[in-house]
Design a protein around this nucleic acid. Structure first.
Length: 491
RNA sequence: GGUCUCUUGGCCGAGUGGCUAGGCAGCGGUCUGCAAAACCGCGUACGGCGGUUCGAAUCCGCCAGAGACCUCCA
């Protein structure tokens, strides 16, 4: 495991060795959710991806400060109408709720979903609404440095001016000339010097209910500002890693770079990481496209295109089985495959606990360990790491079958490796076990029935034996006749 | 239209100049009163056409198809 962690930096479009700015410590910022509706499968991807990063960095012994924001001030949604209405305000009107009530509701639901997916809580989860002052201060410094201008109560970022000294578009690989020729002219933007300028502060129209006072106007902060302001506040002027979905690269992250650079005089982020999208029917899953499935629907199997429910760990496994920079295709078949695969992996961990050691090992699993870590070190290649884990699964099963042997010492090590890799780093957890979902009463009841079935079998009363098995199966309790006895589990 | 990316066996997905992941499904076997489960074994696939090379799925060119960003978006 002496190898170095290498990550793909969107900024340079290359894999680079990761060296923290301060040895032993990492500052990590990830764009969090806008809390105005339930999270869908697509949202799970970045949070699981960067959860893996968070876990792995921690596992490597680094002290990580992980900041993931909650966007709860809403941003302009409907340009076509000409008025521009706050997304959260719009939802509030529809549901007859206070805006902050909407925020609270969906923030809670987001947290529940993340807990279910075993996504660790970030070190700091700042809310945009709680950092209006910091955002205003950042606008001040941008304006003071000459890169922002006020127009009719709103403040805009002067992209052209910025581009004279810095390079606008460096992250997404564009240059301002291209942007000039390709930016759509939108209505109601006459306040701006150029159509590609973006808002730092937006004056609120009378019907806009989410608003804060400022020296420019009663309004709300611009679309990209919160991340710049909050990352600076909690991680400093310069920090190590900024993550988010690929679709945020432009304009969101591009604007963040511009804002931070314009206000601080230097770039903030050293490594930019972007996860790819989840596709459904060949197209990206997105709220705006209406082709999304919420996590809640997935967990409950409650959506027309779902053939069954898929557990949170199945979702996690599904996502981790693809590299984070590749797209993944959603399908029932793929999710079922993930569920089965995960089951097999978890079963092997149990098997590992039951193995009895021999004097000497007949196999060497050290290469396997190394390969796993090599994979993770290579830009977080979780699918490869998982593939090697399955080699370990096979070894484990062969040992159980008596075809291979393992020494006591090796067994301890193998167990510890599997536990740290599967639970600590990849972040899987047991689900559906009796302790959590059924309780002791169920366990006792099933054991009783199993005893009756055993008696029936001894008496060759197959009718009774099969009835017990089939009825239990119908109730969702699966029996497995093994050499050692009868195992059972909830389906 | 501009910029960029992708196309791998039935499905999902790694890999990226020679050693040809992994999971699921399928098939065969072991186990079993039967069944299920579990376990073991089995698959030489890389869009098309050219080129470079001793050798390409992997590099280059062209063509076809799909997608992402350019507007809120994970």
């Amino acid at each position: 495991m002496g190898n170095k962690l290498v990550i793909y930096n969107t900024l340079t479009r290359a894999k680079e060795e990761f060296k923290p700015q301060v040895e032993g410590k990492v500052g990590l910022y990830v764009c969090g959710p806008t809390v105005y509706s339930d999270s869908h499968l697509g949202h799970a991807r970045p949070f699981i991806t960067f959860d893996l990063l968070f876990r792995y960095l921690t596992f490597l012994g680094l002290k990580v400060r992980y900041v993931r924001n909650i966007t709860d001030v809403g941003h302009l949604e409907d340009e076509v109408e000409g008025t521009g209405e706050d997304r959260i305000a719009k939802k509030a009107r529809i549901e007859q709720l206070e805006p902050m009530e909407v925020v609270q509701k969906y923030m809670n639901s987001f947290h529940h979903n993340m807990d279910a997916l075993n996504v660790l809580q970030p070190s700091i989860e700042p809310r945009a609404s709680g950092h209006i002052i910091e955002q205003q201060q950042m606008i001040d410094s941008i304006v003071k440095n000459g890169y922002g201008y006020e127009a009719n109560g709103s403040v805009y970022f002067d992209v052209e001016k910025y581009n004279q000294k810095f390079q606008y578009g460096k992250l997404s690989g564009r240059n301002l000339d291209d942007i000039k020729t390709n930016t759509r002219e939108l209505e109601g933007q006459s306040e701006k010097k150029n159509s590609f300028d973006f808002a730092l502060w937006k004056k609120a129209s009378p019907e806009h209910i989410m608003r804060w006072p400022s020296k420019w106007s009663d309004g709300f902060p611009g679309w990209h500002l919160e991340c710049s302001a909050m990352s600076t506040k909690y991680l400093g002027k310069q920090f190590d890693i900024h993550g988010g979905g690929m679709d945020l690269t432009f304009p969101h992250h591009e604007c963040e770079i511009a804002q931070s650079t314009a206000s601080l005089g230097e770039e903030s982020v050293r490594y930019w990481m972007h996860n790819n999208m989840i596709k459904i029917n060949g197209q990206k899953m997105a709220r705006s496209l209406g082709n999304f499935i919420t996590l809640e629907e997935l967990f409950k199997g409650k959506h027309k295109i779902l053939e069954q429910a898929y557990s949170p760990m199945t979702i996690r496994f599904f996502i981790l089985q693809a590299h984070y920079r590749s797209t993944i295709d959603f399908s029932n078949e793929a999710l079922k495959a993930s569920g089965k695969g995960l089951e097999r992996l978890m079963a092997a961990i149990k098997t590992l606990d039951e193995l009895s050691p021999s004097e000497k090992s007949s196999i060497d699993f050290n290469p396997l360990k190394e390969k796993c870590f090599d994979a993770l070190n290579d830009d977080l290649n979780s699918p490869i790491a998982i593939a090697h884990l399955f080699d370990g699964v096979k070894m484990t099963n062969l040992i159980k079958a008596g075809k291979e042997k393992i020494s006591a010492e090796d067994l301890v090590e193998l167990r510890s490796f599997f536990n740290s890799m599967v639970f600590d780093v990849l972040g899987f957890k047991e689900e559906n076990n009796v302790e959590t979902s059924g309780g002791e009463i169920l366990a006792g009841t099933v054991e009783l029935l199993l005893e009756l079935r055993k008696n029936a079998k001894t008496n060759k009363d197959w009718g009774t034996a099969d009835k017990i098995r089939d009825e239990l199966n119908a109730l969702g309790i699966e029996l497995k006749d093994t050499k050692e006895g009868v195992d059972w589990n909830l389906k």
